[in-house]
Design a protein around this nucleic acid. Structure first.
Lengths: 245, 245
DNA sequence: CATAGAAAGATTTGATCATATTTTGAGGCG
DNA sequence: CGCCTCAAAATATGATCAAATCTTTCTATG
């Protein structure tokens, strides 16, 4: 009964999804837990963009999302507005909102920012690292390898993002982590294009080096591993871009 | 205002140039042009936060803004959501949205980011600099001095922001400039507190050094001037914070 | 007897939706 | 080939319901 009917094929009658059971706040999955509609829509749309389910250049419409995500217009508007301000969507024309297609200059700027921000995050996270978080990162890395082996691009992107996200959240630096997240949202869609073009095999994986650095508490080595990892990733995006031209 | 749009001035590739509407005719003044209500509300609220008219820690309510800015609820909601994602507002409790009060850790992170991002912006802007922009910066700097002389804190903050904004917009680096803008939005309110505490006299002004560097085209000197400027400003914010404790 | 704590009611605020209005893009017709 | 009409999409408003804070009152205990 806690399942709100998500895709009712019935005509859009005025259902009342506002009755909230306050019992299972922590137990349930956060994505489906009781959450304001605008937050749910934001998370869903963010996930679709971040993991390349909406291709760069593809346009999104408010009314298209209201039916795709089964939500009202107000939550969809708020989510789109928020994602535009985060750079995950671009307001192109008066009526066209789409996933951005990176140009060479944007890629260069994002790479510069990532190198400084994520290097710093890696250093700080390493100094705050504990055993349980290392275990968690190992698990994610294993799932990531499995995704590469099976060629599951979506799962690979998810695990890769999760790896970095968990790692950076350990740094106790929300401002830096927020910038990193914002940047991720901008190159994420293009990362999927790279995977579709070259497959998951060619993707770099410096996570083993990073995990070794974490175990020995070597912040400098961890930062270098991260920088190498992201440099390779961004280079592949740039390479895919020039291929398109 | 439109700096979030990735300006792809590169050749538009041979994707599919479909219809080519008149795009260059809309270069008119956008402040007086007709503007969607949500954009107007966003700009107004952003200005109030950025220049400290809403004190750090002060709460804002949706319904309070609908009457203060004479707008409907939907535009106000969108503006608030956007400003939250930019860090200009923080979503504290279930129902509390307020202007953030910086702690020592946030100040340290913002300072780190500003030093790297604005140094880079200053270098690039100096290399792209032209005579008319220097003139414009001189005018803003004069107005800034006038504001200091008369002790008009609000005008000082506005001119100071304008100076940096015009300068950075010359760098042709919208991603970097977007980060700088976002950071400005986070420490802006606290800057006003500093002014209210110590007056405009004690505020640093490295703009003269910067202008000299621009005239000689010395990117390195321009970057150093900017870093000195922002370091002094952030130190004053940090000092004001410890005073409060 | 007074005060503190709790419970219940009232008021304010937030979230969402349906609908009216405006704007824009497109196609038809002169 | 351009202008005019039309339809679709986006904007914006107010209404409505839920929830949280505050307010008041009642009761129990020192």
């Amino acid at each position: 009964m806690q399942e709100l009917m998500t895709q009712a094929s019935l005509p859009p009658s005025n259902a009342r999804p506002r009755t909230v059971p306050r019992t299972d706040l922590i137990a349930a999955d956060q994505t489906t837990a009781q959450m304001p509609a605008h937050e749910r829509v934001y998370q869903q749309l963010r996930g679709r963009i971040l993991f390349g389910e909406i291709a760069p250049g593809q346009a999104v419409t408010i009314q298209g999302l209201t039916v795709a995500l089964d939500a009202g217009m107000t939550p969809v508007r708020e989510a789109i507005r928020k994602l535009i301000s985060e750079g995950a969507l671009v307001f192109q024309g008066n009526r066209r909102v789409s996933v951005p297609q990176l140009d060479a200059s944007s890629i260069e700027q994002i790479t510069f920012l990532r190198k400084t921000v994520e290097y710093e995050l890696a250093r700080r996270a390493t100094q705050q690292m504990n055993r349980t978080t290392i275990k968690r990162l190992q698990q994610i890395d294993a799932a990531l390898d499995a995704a590469i082996a099976t060629g599951d691009v979506g799962d690979y992107l998810r695990q890769n993002y999760q790896f970095h996200h968990v790692f950076y959240s350990q740094a106790q630096a929300p401002v830096l982590a927020g910038i990193a997240d914002r940047l991720w949202l901008q190159f994420g869609p293009s990362l999927r294009v790279v995977c579709g073009r070259f497959g998951t095999q060619s993707l770099p994986d410096r996570h083993k080096d990073l995990l070794n650095a974490l175990r020995s508490g070597d912040a400098e080595a961890a930062g270098q591993a991260i920088v190498l990892d992201l440099e390779q990733g961004m280079e592949q995006i740039a390479a895919a871009l020039t291929r398109i031209d």
